[in-house]
Design a protein around this nucleic acid. Structure first.
Lengths: 144, 144
DNA sequence: CATAAATGTTAGTCCGGCCTAACATTCTCC
DNA sequence: GGAGAATGTTAGGCCGGACTAACATTTATG
């Protein structure tokens, strides 16, 4: 369900029509699945949806969607900026993990992200060694 | 299913009886669910299971179980050693994320872990600032 | 050793989430 | 405006994974 909310928000924010068909394509799922999901989300007060119409988020839905999206982004940024993953793969991974990670872990990842962002690349020797390690398999020497 | 495999391996490795009841308690699930799971895993060639008997892993099952366990451990260690999470919460989180994370991300986390382990605590200033940031909310100054 | 307790199984249900097939509505364009 | 295309819905099925209730087996104990 979270994925559906996220998809709705994503289409909206991109100015694309928020319709069953679009969501279906975006999520790689058939239309009847989307219809069913919209019914559920509508019953849960997350979206406003009428047959054949286009879909809107309620305030609650928007909140939830933004939350999921934030999870997604934090994870994705971590996978890219820290673990140095391929952006596309990172997005896929984030998509799966965003439903499993706890708030605590998420907030901590976010802070790690802040830290990384707040420094110019070369001011984080640890991250640099990590990158080197990833690439060449060399663990750094202890200089002591 | 992965959780069931993991549970079997865990009980075995702790020398506890590997029985429906035990798995049920370990996973917080009722016995019939366990029976059903064992039937499936048996059909998939992962466990050897006969009615009222105790459960064993096949070689394939053992491999799979070890793999899940490794995921769990890498995630758990990351959550504890890097994100500085409460061990108990870390274990719970690991339990949920272990099914969602990709091999790529996992291997990179493992390497991060190696790096952290290979250094004495105080040789990782980044991690130290991170901890400080977590605790007091101070982003470190750039000294340049 | 017999019976009660503990453990395990079966049968049947529910729910979420996906699908296909068939049908309905809306859109587009002549 | 009407016909065909595009889009959307309904109905019905399947699967995984959980549950309860009822029954079966095994174990432990008086």
């Amino acid at each position: 369900m979270e994925d559906y909310l996220e998809a709705v928000e994503m289409l909206r924010s991109k100015g694309r029509p928020v319709r069953i068909n679009e969501i279906s394509k975006l999520l790689g799922v058939k239309m009847p699945s989307v219809t069913a999901a919209m019914k559920r989300l509508s019953k849960e007060g997350m979206v406003i949806y009428e047959r054949y119409g286009s879909i809107k988020l309620t305030p609650a839905g928007e909140k939830a969607a933004r939350d999921v999206f934030r999870r997604h982004e934090i994870l994705r940024r971590f996978l890219i900026d820290v673990l140095d993953m391929d952006p596309e793969k990172a997005a896929e991974d984030a998509c799966r993990m965003e439903h499993a990670i706890s708030t605590t872990a998420l907030e901590r990842l976010a802070k790690l992200q802040n830290l990384v962002q707040s420094c110019p690349e070369d001011r984080i020797p640890w991250l640099t060694s990590y990158r080197r390690y990833l690439e060449h398999g060399e663990l750094p020497e202890h200089t002591d």
